Structure formats: C-alpha cells, structure tokens
Amino acid sequence: MDWKTFQALLSGVNKYSTAFGRVWLSVVFVFRVMVYVVAAERVWGDDQKDFDCNTKQPGCPNVCYDHIFPISHIRLWALQLIFVTCPSFMVVMHVAYRDERERKHRAKFGEDSKLYTNTGKKHGGLWWTYLISLFAKTGIEIAFLYILHHIYDSFYLPRLYKCEVVPCPNVVDCYIGHPTEKKVFTYFMVGASALCIVLNICEIIYLISKRIARIINKCKRRNHHMAVQHDDYNNDNFHNYNVALPKRDMDDKPHPKIRASAPNLTLS
C-alpha cells in the first residue's frame, strides 16, 4: 500500500477542515498510519509462522489459526484506515465541483463576476457535505471497533488457546506468537480509534452549534432592522401630521361674517 500517495490525497482535506478536523488528521497520521507502517506490520508479519500447536496432525495448525484469527488485525486496520478516510474525499470533490462552476461562470460573465465568495468556505451544500462526512467517519469507526470486539472478544489475545476444530484429533493447545506485544498494539490502535470518534463528535457539535448561533444572530439582525424601519415610519407620519395640521386648521376655521347695514330712508 502506497501510504505516501494516501497522505498526499488527505493533505488536501486539511485546508478545508476546522481545528478539530486538523487534530483528527494529525491523530490519524501520527498515531495510526505511522504506528501501522513502522511497528504493527512487523509485529504481525510473522504471525502464522510463530503460531504453534502441540500436534503434528496435518492441517490442524492451519485450521486453528484461521479459527483464532478469522481476520488479521493488520488487514482489518488497513481496511479501517482506508474506509474511515474516504468520506473526507467527499469534501475535496465538492470543492472541486465548486471550482469548476466558478471557472465556467467567470468564463461566461467575465473575470470580475463571482459565483462564490470562497469555494472552500463551508456554507450551503458544502456544509452539509462536511457534516455528512463526519457522521460517515464516526459510523465507520464504531462499526470497525464492533467487528474487532466481536471477533476477538474484547480485544484480548490470550497466550494459550485451546482448539478443538476438525481435523484436530482432540483438544489441542495452541500458542500465539508475541501475545503481549500484540495486545499492547491492539489496545493502542483501539484507543486511537476512540480518540478519533471523540474528535468527530466534538466537530459535529461545533459545526451545528456554530450554525445555530449564526441563524439566531441573523434573525436578531432582521428583527432589529424591521423594528428600526417601523420606528422610522411612525416618526415620519407623526412629523407630516404636525406640519399639515396648521394649514388644515386655518382652512377649517370659520370666517367672520360681514353684515351690510341698510340705508336710513326715513324723511326728517
């Protein structure tokens, strides 16, 4: 497996992630990929060679080994690392789709025209893509931990395993190579996986709370703007009423009547 190419692909996700996402990526590379490549592969490299059973019955050691290790730890962890990082590529592909739309929009309407203020900013559909990728990563981590727990009985590797699978003639004692070392690496990888789950949950809570706070602030600004407009409207009507009132009062005021006195026609 080419882990350098894998790292190069995931490094593009880092610039679109939050602080929790960057810590998650560091944990994946430092505590999981590096430990897997440097130490874990060597510990499990001679696993079947060091597996020993106290019988010479042909096929019995192979059947007992397959019964104890139906899925090798090292291959299961490799699958887990691949599957758990695949949802992050959804974000990269969505940003690439936005970049392509932005390029076509500028080619059609000019370089000064912009469709997105920032194609990598988590708004709209990209926010939902990022949130779905976090839920997918968390679900995959939990699923692989359950598989490991279900197969190996609470992540525990015994020193001695009693096997009674056909074609073994009777109950056979089988010994696992380097059991303490393998147990330490198993607990370490399980702890790193649990830490990644906690980081994913914290990032989900952070994104949702930030979105809710933004919506609340937007509603407050909208209500404040409407209240200011309402006050301005009332003040303008009051001012117009005060200005027009004297003119209307003068028009409605009754004019004084002029009486013409009749001439005195009496003869003296």
Rank of each mutant, 00 (worst) to 15 (best):
E102D: 03
H94I: 01
K122D: 06
T117D: 14
E111D: 13
D66T: 13
H73T: 08
E111I: 10
D99F: 06
P58E: 04
D99V: 04
I74T: 14
C86F: 15
G120Y: 01
N118V: 04
M93R: 12
E100K: 14
V84K: 08
M90L: 14
D66V: 07
Q80G: 04
T119F: 04
E100W: 10
T85P: 02
H105F: 15
F69V: 05
K56Q: 14
F109D: 06
K108L: 03
N118W: 11
V84M: 12
C64I: 00
H123S: 13
E100S: 10
D99S: 07
G110V: 02
V84L: 10
T85N: 07
G124V: 03
L79Q: 14
Y65S: 02
L76D: 06
G110I: 01
H73Q: 11
M93T: 09
P87K: 04
N118M: 09
H123K: 15
V92A: 02
H73M: 10
Q57P: 03
A107Y: 06
Q57G: 03
L79W: 14
F109E: 09
Y116L: 02
T55D: 02
P70S: 01
T85R: 02
F83H: 13
R103A: 01
G110W: 05
V92I: 07
H94C: 06
G125R: 07
E111L: 12
G124H: 06
P87I: 00
T119K: 09
F69G: 01
K104Y: 08
F89W: 12
D99P: 00
R103F: 01
L81A: 05
E111Q: 14
L115K: 08
S72C: 02
A107Q: 13
F69C: 01
S72I: 07
I74H: 12
I74Y: 11
R103T: 04
I68D: 08
K104E: 08
C86W: 15
S113W: 10
D112R: 13
T55Y: 04
G120Q: 06
L76H: 07
P58C: 00
R103L: 05
W77F: 15
P58Y: 05
L76K: 06
P70R: 00
K108D: 00
L81F: 12
R98A: 01
D66H: 13
S113T: 08
V63N: 03
V63F: 05
Y116E: 00
D112H: 11
H123P: 00
K56A: 12
L76I: 03
K122I: 09
Q80N: 13
T85I: 00
M93G: 07
G125I: 04
W77G: 07
G120I: 00
S88I: 08
A78R: 14
V95K: 01
T117F: 12
V63P: 03
H94N: 12
T119N: 06
G110M: 01
L79G: 11
H105W: 13
R75Y: 13
C86A: 15
V63D: 03
A96E: 09
K108T: 03
G125D: 05
S113D: 12
K56E: 14
V95P: 01
I71S: 11
H123D: 15
